[in-house]
Structure formats: structure tokens, C-alpha cells
Design a protein around this nucleic acid. Structure first.
Length: 117
DNA sequence: AAGTTGACGGATG
DNA sequence: TCATCCGCCAACT
């Protein structure tokens, strides 16, 4: 129950996630670091889990270091995530994994920094 | 108040 | 490449 108050560490996570551009993805660890949580990658996942309502936070652009969706089979949330990413131009390989070398978001590089689209 | 948990990550086998 | 183990740190019970 933290949907209402968004002023803790989680708010920083949301702020970072909101900066992830369309067609790009970031890993939990990356978001954690950008949010100043250091090694709190797990907290990022925890924060997004508590998010429930999106509130303009593109949570679907956050994936694990393997380049895969970490969500369990909850209410098809993982399907939603994949669908949204594909719709944004992010491609999955045969194993359902994303090529981080191509789609990983590089903070700062605001212009197209290589990846398609 | 204390212990457990977890949308993770990295090293190791 | 996949399976295990350990480490991090705040939220939850």
C-alpha cells in the first residue's frame, strides 16, 4: 500500500523510469543506480511491483540483466509488457529475450544512439 | 521489534 | 547457456 504516497525511495525509481525513452529498455540494476539506490536493484522491482497503477510510469521498459521480462505469470502482466515493448519497436529473439547491446537506454544520449527506429 | 521476502545482479560450477 | 549461491536493502508481516 504505497500507491498514494510517492515520496520515498520509490519515487526516485519512478522518476528514472519515466525518463526511459520509447523503444528503449533499462535493467533494474541500471535504474537502481540512476535512482541513487546503488545496489538496490531488488528495490526497483519491489517499487514497480507496488506501482500497480501506472501513473505515467513506463514500467514495461524495465527488464532484468538477462534482457528478459522478469514478471511471473501474473494476470498476463508479462504479456502486456512484451506487447507494449514490441509495439514500441523493441525486438525479442527466439528465446524471448531482448538484445541489450542494442536496446539498452543510454542516459544522456538523447538523440538516436544507434538502435533502430 | 525482528525476521522474512523479493518485478535483481554477478560470480561460480 | 543454464543452474546455484550469495550479497544488497527497503518494505512487509
Amino acid at each position: 500500500m504505497v500507491e498514494g504516497k510517492q515520496q520515498g525511495r520509490w519515487a526516485r525509481v519512478y522518476a528514472v523510469v519515466r525518463r526511459i525513452p520509447e523503444g528503449r529498455v533499462a535493467t533494474y540494476g541500471q535504474v537502481a543506480e540512476l535512482a541513487g539506490l546503488g545496489a538496490g536493484a531488488r528495490q526497483v522491482g519491489y517499487a514497480l511491483h507496488a506501482l500497480r497503477s501506472e501513473m505515467g510510469v513506463p514500467w514495461h521498459r524495465v527488464i532484468n540483466a538477462r534482457g528478459e521480462i522478469s514478471l511471473g505469470h501474473l494476470g498476463g502482466a508479462n504479456v502486456t509488457q512484451r506487447l507494449r515493448l514490441e509495439r514500441e519497436g523493441v525486438k525479442f529473439n527466439a528465446r524471448g529475450r531482448i538484445d541489450l547491446k542494442v536496446f539498452r537506454w543510454k542516459p544522456g544520449s538523447r538523440k538516436k544512439s544507434g538502435p533502430p527506429r
